[in-house]
Nucleic acid binder design. Structure first.
Lengths: 196, 196
DNA sequence: CGCCAGGTTGAAGCGCTTCAACGTCTGTGG
DNA sequence: CCACAGACGTTGAAGCGCTTCAACCTGGCG
């Protein structure tokens, strides 16, 4: 049932079987259909969600336009972590890109677990550090690289995104228009061809 | 001696006086002169640093150019947190903008303290969450706003930066050239004047 | 089959950069 | 005390990177 989650969790902080059983007891299982929302702007993220099946994208509505900020696949967490941590209304939308199954941990239960078990507190610290590092890298992409370089880096580091996600969302994620992404791809294709 | 640090720390997780004394025992005090480096690219950040006096900027050398990524003032931490967490070589430079005094906590001591005292483990989690939230907000600035909007937001949220830091660094921090920042400021001045 | 969302292509335009010249302030040595 | 250097900021003109808008193409799905 919880193999993927257990594998993920134990790779960060191993628990005893009893501790694991205690943590698992608080899980709520939910299923979403394609295009359903895990959270919408204005709602507070009261649980943290592990994606067991399917995939999600997060986006913000800015001046009437959707700006896609991330993609989550099975085997990772998908939440508005800021809304979850601050327990304030979210600024983002999290939408299922296909039919999904998720495991949710309510905020209050997590706080209790942090206090009652130092290993889980440590897990919380390491997860926060991990997502901080991810965000740091994504920020560096924007600060240091051109759109073309960002595209190539994405291709290299998260090929699954390029393969599975509609180009319109990828372009937004890269901070460019779909038209310009199309031109970049075309250009790369030409230079690749000329190498043959 | 450690009033600022204590205030900062206790606002996140209060400790008993004995616990505080234990933590303080590991502090190393350092002084830096203007333009000295707290860390350079290639070095590993083996301590986390609290700024007691002075201020710093962080920058990366990208394609031969300095890209300023942050400013730290007294009363906050100044480190390459990613290098510190991963214990891998840093990609950034941290430079003193004036004469500074810092308190350093070595990585190994911090790890020991995390394990020996759950309150300090919790402190570590909350700090990681806090800097994650800061980075999230900075990222949103870049993804959602124009240079002019970013400048106005900076003016509103961190006026100290606008007041104390040379424009050449501010421009870099905002992701634009100094020339363009100058034009933005000029434009804002004009529209402000027209309101009088 | 026909529709429409997703992707491509072209032309025009804007936002920001680049480069060069000039202005201004501060500190420093003659 | 002034001359001068050098760093920081401003201004103008030209250019490039990316967007915008519109037309067209293609494949999947009702």
């Amino acid at each position: 049932m919880y193999e993927k989650l257990k594998k993920y969790h134990f790779s960060i902080v191993p628990l005893t079987e009893e501790e694991w059983a205690m943590k698992v007891r608080h899980i709520q299982i939910k299923k979403l259909r394609k295009n359903d929302f895990l959270i919408k702007e204005g709602q507070t993220c009261t649980s943290v969600h592990f994606v067991n099946k399917g995939s999600f994208r997060t986006y913000n509505l800015i001046k009437g336009k959707e700006v896609t900020t991330n993609f989550f696949f099975d085997g990772s967490y998908a939440s508005d972590y800021v809304s979850y941590l601050t327990q304030k209304p979210s600024l983002e939308y999290i939408q299922a890109l296909e039919d999904c199954e998720i495991f949710s941990f309510p905020y209050d239960r997590m706080q209790e677990m942090y206090e009652s078990n130092p290993k889980i507190q440590k897990f919380g610290r390491l997860i926060a550090e991990k997502i901080f590092i991810n965000m740091y890298r994504r920020q560096q992409e924007f600060l240091f690289f051109t759109p073309k370089e960002r595209y190539l880096n994405l291709l290299k580091r998260r090929p699954k995104v390029i393969q599975q996600i509609p180009q319109i969302y990828i372009a937004s994620y890269l901070g460019i228009t779909p038209e310009y992404l199309s031109r970049i791809r075309n250009e790369l294709k030409s230079t690749a061809d000329s190498l043959l």
